[in-house]
Design a protein around this nucleic acid. Sequence first.
DNA 1: TCTGGGGTCCTAGGACCC
DNA 2: TCTGGGGTCCTAGGACCC
Length: 375
Amino acid sequence: MAMGWYLHIDMDAFFASVEQVLDPSMRGKPVIVGGRNGRGVVTSASYEARKFGVHSAMPGFQAKKLCPDGIFVPNRRRVYSEFSHKVFAILERYSPEVHAVSIDEGIVDLTGTDRLFGPPLKTADQIIRRIETELGLPSSAGLSQSRVVSKIAATLAKPRGLIYVPPGSEKEFLIPLAVELIPGVGPKTHKLFSRKEIKTIGDLLKRPELAARFLDLGEAQRRERRHDHSIGNETTLDKPLRDKEPMEAVLWDLVEEVGSRLRREELYARCLTLKIRYTNFQTISRSCTLPAPTRFDREIFDVVSDLLRQNIGQGRAVRLLGVSASALQSSGWQEPLFTRERRKSWEKLYQGIDALRHKYGENTIGAATPRNRSR
DNA sequence: TCTGGGGTCCTAGGACCC
DNA sequence: TCTGGGGTCCTAGGACCC
């Protein structure tokens, strides 16, 4: 089996780097994106800020304490998105097979690009240079014949590095590394591993049943992403709420955001979910699958406010509300309810007929229509 | 001065169907 | 007359990622 070459590109301190590109006075300085106004967390910290111990997901006040002279800037999602597109446009010059892992990470399939661009390692080097010269953005990369290995290599290469793992040396490369480097191994799994005395990837490889689950080196049966995506908005309340009315006001805002995003993307949702986080951080979700898909604020609101009504009370204070739409599809049924319901029942009927025919033969079922049954 | 907001994927149980 | 086995859909929660 011919092995492919996978180049994993990971932008360095992406949001902070973009801010530094747009405002040269920030270059070489500790830039901290997010986490201002008291609540909220850091979403990106420049390497200058990281020297002070600031990192993403850190509460803003803590970052301020560690790095009082840091330049705190608000999140500008749209701007980062634009830069992300520019980065991917560069990647796409080198291969038709580019997979966006996230806003700042991508996999370039360099299999068979030799003839056009030369050996993969040379191409990899050229790609990160080009991102730097054309956009001013630093990035790191990992190159190998395994997606997981390339991803881990890119992480280790940071910042501004490129790690190449030659074919055949993958295990040698992985064995001494900490298990937390494996994508999908978070705090919980790490703790579980610690209890089993699994500290390095080498330790994990000695346990084939676990290794198979967390480290798919062969990638033989790589699952296709379902990509049944969802659209949602949530917000942490300025102060905890107990009463329905103020919560409904927040809910309405969220519904409007979700509704307009659905319409902008020409989508309808068949499933709606309400998310509630109480002040003790317990988080619940309540979802509802609709008889017909929708993208209309009023309909969405009616459903989620119903779910809200059923899940507040007993004086429990709520700190966060979220609304999300899933089971998305590109068209809604616009027929009136009656038609729709009747069509559904017909569909059901014919499903039954098909099944019986399959079981007992084609001619057994002619009389089984609703009309005949009702007589 | 507690812990954001956007997501994906996986699991598990129950309802329901054949 | 005590009971299988397969499948899908729905719901809820949780781990994880950036």
